[in-house]
Simulated assay, not measured.
Amino acid sequence: MEAVSNGEKVIRRLYEITKNYDLGFETQIEQILKMGLERFNLDIAILSKIDNNRYVIKHCVVPADVELVSGVELDLDTTYCHITCQANSPIALEYVGKHDQYASHPAYQSFGLESYIGMPIKLNGKLYGTLNFSSPTPYDRKFAAVDIDAIQLMASWIEVEIIRRNQEKRLIDLNLALEKKAYEDSLTLIPNRRAVFKHINADLNRVSREKSNAALAIIDIDLFKNINDTYGHKKGDEVLIKVAESIDNDIRDYDFVARFGGEEFLLWLPNCDMSIATMVCDRIRHNIEALSLCETPITISIGITCFGADMIQKKQAKERVDELILQADKALYKAKDAGRNCIKFYDIA
């Protein structure tokens, strides 16, 4: 009857700890370790991770005079958990010093821990580490079946929770990767057209708050169709990739470049007036012309619109971006009409 009562206490306490996800995983593990110490009346509680033959303490609850903290690494062979992992099941030792097999174990020789109960932690059948409780004094009774049940319950929740957290992390990472792909041009690996509105609109809010200036430019590779027709689409793709790399290398850390479509790139230059925009775009134009990609140099035409905060504050978000793009596009047509391979500005007046 007592064993059943103790088992129920373990289940109830474990439920109280594990149902409260607001505590956070670290606190839940600490409370489980403390629960185990109270249940077994032992002194040292450890959740370890085993990496090759290294025993790494991930979480521990120990007396003040025991020098063990999270992050400490030991050779697995020098720990009782080496026995636990080999046994592939719970190990319960009441008096190691009197045990025929384990009294000579390096762990006993090094640490002198007399009592120990441990359980392997496995994630999808693969060893992760161990949950273990120990003490330098012998256990005052035999570890009972209810003790084995208790450590198995604790270990099972830890296994499930680590798996859940790993899956959650993988899902978050996957979502971030998918989001990145959604805003990334698959060929040049720079932001795509979809990313333009998201980035520029956010930065326009900053421009408005700080009452600063900015510029938006559209860059077009001159006579790009001739490159595809003469050298093939593979060479055309190479040109797009190299041009994107060249632009990206020539801009400031806080500038933004995106592939806007086909052979066009959009350039966003915050904290920028006409003179800075001219300097940046001239550098881009000359460096692209210096690329040795075809028999004749690659040239670009650039249309730029420069503006201040007062010009955008009254516009709706999408309207602001659309209008700026339209202005830069008009300037680009001026550059093409002027014979290409040049920079033209939108005349606000």
Rank of each mutant, 00 (worst) to 15 (best):
H59Y: 15
W268E: 08
I172G: 02
Q327G: 03
L223W: 13
Y15C: 11
R13F: 08
L68G: 14
D43S: 14
V160E: 10
I251D: 04
E289I: 01
I251N: 01
F133C: 03
K169P: 03
A215V: 09
L37W: 12
K180H: 10
K181C: 07
C85Y: 11
A335M: 04
C281D: 04
G262T: 04
S186M: 12
G232H: 05
I83R: 01
L223F: 14
K211W: 04
Y55P: 00
R340C: 08
I276W: 07
P63N: 10
Y95V: 10
H105D: 08
K336I: 06
R194V: 11
L113K: 11
S275T: 13
A335Y: 07
V196N: 05
Y80C: 06
I163R: 12
D140C: 09
I50P: 03
I343L: 11
E319P: 06
I348W: 08
F224R: 00
Q28D: 00
E67H: 14
N287K: 13
I29A: 01
M311G: 05
Q31I: 13
V62W: 12
W268D: 06
K142R: 14
E2R: 14
N41V: 05
E210I: 03
K19V: 12
C294Q: 09
I284Y: 02
D75I: 12
A145V: 12
F25W: 15
E289M: 08
V207D: 04
I276M: 13
L113P: 06
A64Y: 14
Y346D: 05
Y139E: 09
N201F: 08
D255I: 12
L74I: 07
T137A: 15
V196S: 09
L153N: 12
H99Y: 10
